[in-house]
Design a protein around this nucleic acid. Sequence first.
RNA 1: GGCCCGUUCGUCUAGUUGGUUAGGACGCAAGAUUUUCAUUCUUGAAAUCAGGGGUUCGAGUCCCCUACGGGCUACCA
Length: 537
Amino acid sequence: MCVGNYSFLFFFTTIKKNFRRCIVFNAIKMERKIRVRFAPSPTGPLHIGGVRTALYNYFFAKQHGGEMILRIEDTDQTRFVPGAEEYIIEALKWLGIKFDEGVGIGGNYGPYRQSERKPMYKQYADQLINTGWAYYAFDKPEELDAKRKEFEAQKKTFQYDCNTRSGMCNSLTLPAVEVERRISSGEPYVVRFKFPADTEIRVHDLIRGEVKMNSNLLDDKVLFKSDGMPTYHLANIVDDHTMEISHVIRGEEWLPSAPLHVMLYKAFGWEDTMPQFAHLPLLLKPDGNGKLSKRDGDRLGFPVFPLEWHDPKTGEVSSGYREKGYFPEAVVNILAFLGWNPGVEQEIFSIDELVKIFSLDRISKSGAKFDVEKAKWFNHKYIQAKSDEEITAIFEKDLAERGINAKHDYVLQVVALMKERVSFVSELWEQTTYFFQAPTEYDPAVIKKRWKEDTPAHLTEIRKIVETTAFEKQTLHDAVMGYIQGNELNMGQIMNSFRLTLVGAAKGPDLFELISMLGKDETIARLQKGIETIKQI
RNA sequence: GGCCCGUUCGUCUAGUUGGUUAGGACGCAAGAUUUUCAUUCUUGAAAUCAGGGGUUCGAGUCCCCUACGGGCUACCA
């Protein structure tokens, strides 16, 4: 009874205290400067899932007039890949994601590369040891492996936690002098977090709400490695705190370690300035299930990386959106809509519009599969919206590579006429070849269908018309129509075979449009060549 | 195995005080336009809201269970 009353009172005061703190806490949050970070690891090219994370961070920061920071998390020296950091920076730049601070930019909270921050982490590990939130562990990797095998043999899983730490080799089980001796003699050690037993840890996630976990199930994660570097867990908390990060927006794969991170803020006494968390749903592979991985892209015909990547070790090349002909604005738009939706029917948004309309609470909880067809459609929309000049500039490079010399105005006309028919500038050439080169072969299916016995005779007459009529679109049109009507022919009989001689296939724009662009001599030459070489099938 | 997260047309999704013929987009099909192919436009098919229980006059929307999927489970991030 007495105990009951007491605990009730305790419970009540705790609530009151928490309530008050909550209010203060929120007040701080409201006034707090929005600062977010994108923190990739330079272990390879940036995955589009990572790009989307960067994008959402960017939208959020810019919308709130906050700052966007680029931090490079290179605490694992064994996984360092040369060129990866440069790749990340270039990719983000290509997409138009601008940073206010970070690697390559600078700022007041630097350095922004964790390897360069190395000297500052140890004191934090020490602080945790001194306050009893962490301990030294001397277990060798082989010993841990042996332990895992031993548990496995009993169909159990070994976890270094509050239940097993007492049976391991650490500063909790060794006498203080021995711990001292080992450290001073240079014996390798790690620092592990000491999870308190039987504690419910709540993580408030902006997307998923409250996520609860019991500390008994969590393992004593290594915070500080024997090579003198912190692990991600320690480094990210220390850095987010010292860089005054207000919101951590990252992938869902981090959700299981979020309780550890929350506990670390508590252990350091930084609860009041702890950032708010938002764990983004994963990007899934289009077929089947599972996280989108490096191999899926080229297997299914779409890039997984923003830029083409040449693996320095294997020499393997992975395709990129940029090289595939996607516009950066389109990629931004595509990615923005994978896991987020503005709730309006409009789907085409510029990056600045996305900044205005984006909101964390409209992010979905479930993973999204990448749809190549929809991605193409987005690019198609962007190619249509872009100016003829802009598309021409890109197309001219393609033409130059193919050894095609054409006047700028001519290419511009071709682009104006044809750009809305393609999804990528790279598709333009195969749709417009006949504007630059006379056909060298004729589609047999079209010959069979359209090339009749009397076709050469009619086309010879048409050639005469082209030769003698004023070379102007409408005039030619009227003249040809006059011939067709005068001889009681069908439009299709003449127009399709005529087209075949000029294009070589049953495709292309309005015929008189094409004729006026090709010019009189070229039109006559193609017509004549067709008359002479196309044989009825 | 354990823990956590998720589940609306094939795909991305709308649905946010429980009352909708469950809406849109991509893709697909048909039609229209055109001299062809595309574009464009119109129309259509397409979700028993994973399944089962509750709560309620009424549930895609709230609760529980199950199934399935995914993530994590390193001195990786």
